[in-house]
Write a protein that binds this DNA or RNA. Structure first.
Lengths: 199, 199
DNA sequence: TCCGCGTTGCTAGCAGTGCTAGGGACAAGA
DNA sequence: TCTTGTCCCTAGCACTGCTAGCAACGCGGA
């Protein structure tokens, strides 16, 4: 059975190569540049091989997004645990979220903008997705003040997402990005708007 | 010169037909179903005619988006002026914004999600865009409480946009949509989270 | 009324897309 | 050595956005 195992191992390795190639290509030139032909060329196999691993191009994007969830969760976790106190955790984690979206826009798109076939707000959602949301929830929770913490976290996440996507789409000028984020934080933490949040 | 004028009139009419057809097709089946061939068939002209009016498909989407800005601005204005007092204006206008996005998702996408070539946060931005933003600003302004009203409006808009897009993309369950919106409003108006906002 | 000419919109085609059918080569087992 | 089965590649389909080049129409002048 060793031959079988080696084959499966090689197959899994190749699948990983495809996902990595798709992510790199997307991050370098955007998702519209990721075609099955270029992808196949990059992994040095023919097109149909891709379809023996994934149902279609969308499934490849989904796989890339799944990797991204784990990355984001890790970065959020690092930001939150590095915060000196709970009060500043939200500011830190928000900054980390925005930075992630800014640094890896194509990956962020696959995760949160593009149409992918994943169960999101459900128990069967990917573990990394839950992990990322939980990080946010832990930072938002202390400011709930009677409101449903889960819903408040969702609302805060939505606000961050809106800020990120509108800025990236050219709808909001990049100039005052930090001040908008600070305002958002002030609203959710119910602090005075002008009390700069030291990170 | 009357012949010339008639021609230009007919040409403008046809251009409007193209835009309308594109919008209707997008609203009925989504933007991925809007192909130049189907569009041409719908306006009963051949494909190349489209290119004598617009530089490309993107330009058609931009034209559709421009129409949408006017529609949205009108609906926001109606919602704001119908509000019994300034305190409730924000809730009304928010509901109108969300309803617009929900009712005309394809149009909303063209306006705020898809990549279009328009100057947004600039003086030369389309008038309808300014008008819509001003409606929002007028409703947000009273709650600024010392903060920059323009930036606060942008932040609030971003939050609404995030809520809308995450819900539409399946990232947030539709179930508690209203409660999330209410939470958002409570944060921005700095009211207690559980004081339901009567519309 | 007729003719030349410019405009207009058509047919046909290009290069590229996602995806798939079919066959051919290679390796494993008898 | 031969058969069997797996694997992967070549070729092609139907579609996309976009464009070149031609044919026909209608206007302006004679």
């Amino acid at each position: 059975m060793s031959i079988q195992e080696r084959r499966e191992r090689e197959r899994a390795q190749r699948e990983k190569m495809i996902i990595t190639a798709a992510r790199e290509l997307a991050e370098a030139e955007g998702w519209e540049a990721v075609t099955t032909r270029r992808l196949a060329e990059r992994v040095e196999y023919s097109q149909p091989v891709l379809y023996s691993h994934f149902k279609g191009k969308d499934a490849i994007m989904t796989a890339v997004a799944l990797e991204g969830f784990a990355d984001l969760a890790a970065e959020l976790r690092a930001a939150r645990t590095a915060a000196p106190d709970a009060a500043r955790a939200l500011a830190r984690i928000s900054a980390a979220y925005v930075a992630f979206a800014e640094r890896r826009p194509a990956l962020y798109d696959a995760m949160f903008s593009q149409k992918v076939d994943l169960p999101f707000a459900a128990p069967e959602a990917p573990a990394a997705l839950h992990a990322g949301f939980d990080e946010l929830a832990q930072a938002v929770g202390p400011h709930a003040d009677g409101a449903d913490p889960g819903l408040l976290t969702e609302a805060f996440w939505a606000a961050l997402h809106g800020l990120v996507t509108l800025t990236r789409g050219g709808r909001l000028p990049r100039g005052q990005h930090d001040r908008r984020l600070a305002l958002l934080l002030a609203c959710f933490t119910r602090e005075p708007a002008d009390s700069g949040h030291p990170l």
